[in-house]
Amino acid sequence: MKKLVIIGLVIAGLFSPMLLVKADVNPKLNGIHPLKTEEVNSVQVKRLSGRSRIFQINDGYEEVIIRKVINWINTSRPANGVTEFESYKSPVKLKVTMSNGDVASLEPVFNCITENDGKTCTLVDSEVLYTQNKVKVRLKSQELYDWLLVGWKYESYGASKEELLDETLYFRYFTQLDEKNSDFIMCPKIDSIERIAGADRRHIVQASALNYGAHHGDVPYDRINITLSDTPENGVKITNVSIEKGISGKESRIQCRRES
């Protein structure tokens, strides 16, 4: 029963918070306080041309994207320069809506020069203007700047077919694990499948997953590696189980297909 409950939680939000490595943040930056992901409802990007996209915190896949963006905001460095612009229309704007109704916003920074009765404005590379509770501050973050301009367009819509197939197969085999390994339900992968003596109904499978208990990011993930046989006559037989303790942040992101 415990396994069924855990599997249900995974389906509701399998990939939630594991993506980000825990980072140090400035406790207060020119009147700006760090954002808390658990207090965010959504992140929306809107272009002046009309195209937009919204990422919802209650979507397990999009929560990973929101955590990434909030981490970039919280770890950005302050930048010098003005924060008020005349006749300035940003081509793209990011809006962070909190659960209490507060809204924070981000937009790229421009340098504008007026000469010969004309005005020329150019983007300031890696800088964004951040507004929170009517307080404005310029921040410097190449990752945040790049994502605000173009990166958000290329975020995937949900899990790929490959990920869904991996989940389906893994949880077929998951029920064969000992109760002591029931926490290994994060980011399941089928690492390899080989036919036994060329038979198309008999296979050797290698699978892996991370422990759900580390998803808050306080400690590194552990990874389980499983080798098993799957045949019509004998069903699923697990032949080897090993645990990798405290894998690196990069390895955990690769496991969850968030880094290559």
Rank of each mutant, 00 (worst) to 15 (best):
F110S: 00
G13M: 13
E251L: 12
P232I: 03
S248W: 07
P34Q: 10
L123C: 02
V25K: 10
L177C: 06
P188F: 04
E233H: 07
G118W: 05
Q56E: 15
S126M: 04
K134V: 01
G246P: 00
F85K: 06
Q56C: 01
K134T: 07
K189Q: 14
F110E: 00
G8Y: 04
E86S: 12
I65Y: 14
S76I: 01
V150C: 00
P91M: 09
A104I: 03
R257L: 13
L210W: 01
R223Y: 02
G151H: 06
D178Y: 03
K89T: 13
R253P: 05
D222H: 10
M18W: 07
D178R: 12
S260T: 11
K237A: 10
I32E: 01
S260D: 12
H203F: 15
Y212I: 12
Q132P: 03
F110L: 02
L169G: 10
E115R: 04
A209C: 06
P220M: 04
Q44E: 13
F55G: 00
I66G: 00
G249D: 13
P220L: 06
I190P: 07
S105V: 07
G60D: 03
Q255Y: 05
A197E: 08
E62C: 00
E259Y: 11
L4N: 08
G60K: 04
R47V: 01
K89L: 14
V92F: 10
S156Q: 13
C187T: 00
V45D: 00
A207W: 01
V82E: 05
K237N: 13
L228E: 11
D178M: 08
N71R: 14
G13C: 09
L106N: 05
Y88C: 09
V45I: 15
V128L: 15
N240T: 09
D117I: 03
F171E: 09
K237M: 10
L20R: 09
G118N: 14
G213F: 07
E38W: 03
E84K: 12
I224S: 02
M186A: 10
E86V: 13
L144D: 06
R257M: 11
M18Y: 09
E62V: 01
V150K: 12
E244K: 12
Q176V: 01
I204R: 15
C121G: 03
Q176C: 07
P91F: 11
P232K: 00
V82T: 12
L94A: 10
H203G: 00
G198V: 04
T83E: 01
D146E: 12
V69K: 06
I247P: 08
I73C: 08
L94P: 04
L228F: 06
E167S: 08
Q142D: 05
E167R: 14
N80R: 00
T168H: 11
V21F: 09
L210N: 02
K2D: 11
I238V: 15
T114H: 04
K68R: 14
L29E: 03
L48Y: 05
Y145N: 10
L165W: 06
Y173M: 14
I254G: 02
N71I: 02
T114V: 13
A12C: 04
S49W: 09
M1T: 08
S248I: 08
D166A: 14
I54N: 07
K89D: 15
D117P: 00
